[in-house]
Nucleic acid binder design. Structure first.
Lengths: 228, 228, 228, 228
DNA sequence: CATGAATGAGGGTTCATTCAT
DNA sequence: AATGAATGAACCCTCATTCAT
């Protein structure tokens, strides 16, 4: 109780500081001292908790993707229709921009750093696998057309999300709350619309159908948020 | 003929070598000496043609995006229907993986690295603008539904393409010729399908419709390939 | 009895651990943490008993040279003939390799490292002085030729011992018990033989003469062993 | 001709500077910058010629031992009597103190640095082997007593030389020219005296016998000096 | 006594860039 | 145009030492 910051808290303190610094200057452009300074700890303490600067970044990646995986898994297990599930994934992912812009900035900017992806592939791969299963089940129940590879569809869907985040990160896209909501609707509409069989529930206004209009999103509290 | 390598050829020699080295080790992980060695020239000669290591990367970016912009512009001006145009953009972009995997690898891995995007934004921005106009025109002629922002749609579309390329670059996705063609069809089907108005030309199988079956792609020679 | 480890024992525990670690990795190459780990104590406890890492090494040096000095002094005061005294010194020094190889390894490897010799010079110097006196007395009683400087002789003698130890430490010389005994005989024979006046006791078989054959070494228990 | 310092000369410049700095402060206590400063070159240039600070020391060791080996080999092949050969080795080794005190200081102080001896063992080992052969031949022709192991004798002999050098390096021993010459005589007398058969050439004054008095050392110019 | 988190100066090394040849 | 030796600032990391608990 009286302990101000436990060991684990100190570790998180450093991670949070690293996210801010990486977001501000980029991984390669920042020095280890910047992170320590931002965290308000001594230079070498970082090396008590992490074996290298790179491990700090890897930890950020892993932690985030683990959360992401948890969120997607939760949605996947909800039993809702596939289009609604994709919509929720889009909502979780895209809303995280406003929640934790620094973290998203780091992920977007450094996502393809070679060494990480090799290792992080597990978490990322599982997240993609979950998306893939959502698409597959949509196909099985006849909601989605069956002539497309679920794998490719999950990639298309996730790529769309990532590019939207990139637009916000780079300041090339307006990101007011309503802009974010519109982006969620648009990506859900386009991708789900393209995935759904031609006449399934199509009444002329696109995928999410009436649900959208009926206040389709009570799940906000249910879904694990993407961030700490 | 007797001239071994002209100045301009030497410059390109270095650029090509840089692409291979960046693809192999990444921009930050490679040394200027690696590029020179790969090009078979001396250490300092690189500085006759480029003012810095970074300018080499920027040149690769600019050249490629200029080509990309040219290709997209060409497609945009073809007068074909919007879905067909998007399809061709997808074809040009995705087929470039097999043509020039190293170059794509560099673009995918380094694409969001901070300092570059500031400058490259112009070319990239114009490419996005062209995609946006394609979507807009599809909306104007009633092919695409009008209730979606063209900007967001272009982002979704391009994000899908980039994520597919990423899958190939990272070796997480099969990339035989038929896989590439399937990816082209899939992204065109999904995105165009999601963009099109519910009953416009829908005959139950999605966007590319009959066109696909009628040998829809004589454009291979027409379209400027994405690479040198 | 019930006391697990007294303060003094803990101190010695750390010293013993340090000897093992220094022998294994060398003084400069090992970390303070290595010593603590080897001793099974916590990081900072070392600083309760020693003021620095260097003091640990100095303590090892001083303790050992104090013992060495004690052994040599004991031999010097035995009243035996000079050749026999040198022989016993050789025996004490060289046999210590098998007794405490780690300690000898540390002494051999770190012996001339700069800062230590300044301080240790006192003990080392006294040991050399004792050797010198042994030689001098041999000269006074006519056993050793008088035309050689005792100081140089003591250096030659000790250098021979140290180089033999070095050969064992570096694994370049066989070190079975009989090899050690042969080394003792050889160094005594060569050095004493060279020191002795041409015809003094020379009966054709070398220095230690009959003494050697008569079981010349009952001193094993008498002489203070070189090690704790 | 007009070239002030060739590449090889620059390399040697750095080595010479390193010897001076190592002699002054010791290997561990000096910084790479000290070497560069002493050599009058830039910090990083050292890394053009050597891969690390340690390689600089190793090069000094190897070069010197190669010279030592050459000198000993030359003496070994001279066909002179074994005692005279040992005497010349002593002369070459001990006189090197006055010629190149810094170099000797480095060798004496750092000789047992673990990693080096593993590698340098080849040159050092060959030098010992040459000494061993000198002793063996002395035994074969009946000059040296045959009941001693040549290997041990070579170690005893070299240890004596090294300890004398150590005495000078540490300033514990007078090192005027006459002191050096006396040390040469003493070590030759003692070791050769101990090695020789009791009455072989013994006329009461030890080994070098008359030869010494007859101007026994015209070899000064003949023998390869130990230093560059 | 004992612990180990915290400190931070200092080290070796790298490497983009320059420049004399 | 071409070379590669020379430069030196910058960086990551180590690790002896301290100190609050």
């Amino acid at each position: 109780m009286s302990e101000r910051t436990s060991s684990e808290e100190k570790r998180q303190l450093i991670l949070d500081a690293a996210v801010r610094v990486f977001a501000r200057k980029g991984y390669h452009e920042c020095r280890v001292g910047d992170i320590a300074e931002e965290a308000g700890v001594a230079y070498g303490l970082l090396y008590h908790y992490f074996s290298s600067k790179e491990e700090v970044l890897e930890t950020i990646f892993r932690d985030t993707w683990t959360m992401m995986l948890g969120a997607v898994s939760g949605i996947e297990g909800s039993g809702e229709p596939a289009p609604e599930q994709l919509r929720k994934v889009a909502a979780v992912v895209l809303r995280s921009w406003k929640r934790t812009p620094d973290l998203i900035g780091v992920l977007v900017r450094e996502i393809t750093r070679s060494p990480h992806l090799q290792d992080e592939t597990k978490e990322i791969g599982e997240a993609f696998a979950a998306l893939e299963r959502i698409v597959s089940r949509g196909q099985e129940v006849g909601t989605f057309r069956a002539d497309l590879e679920p794998r490719l569809c999950s990639i298309i869907f996730y790529g769309a999300l990532e590019e939207l985040l990139t637009g916000w990160v780079l300041g090339q896209l307006p990101d007011e709350d309503e802009d974010v909501e519109r982006a969620i609707r648009t990506v859900a509409t386009v991708v789900c619309g393209g995935l759904m069989v031609a006449d399934a529930g199509r009444d002329g206004d696109g995928v999410p159908g009436k649900a959208e209009k009926e206040g389709f999103e009570p799940s906000k509290e249910v879904v694990t948020p993407l961030t700490p």
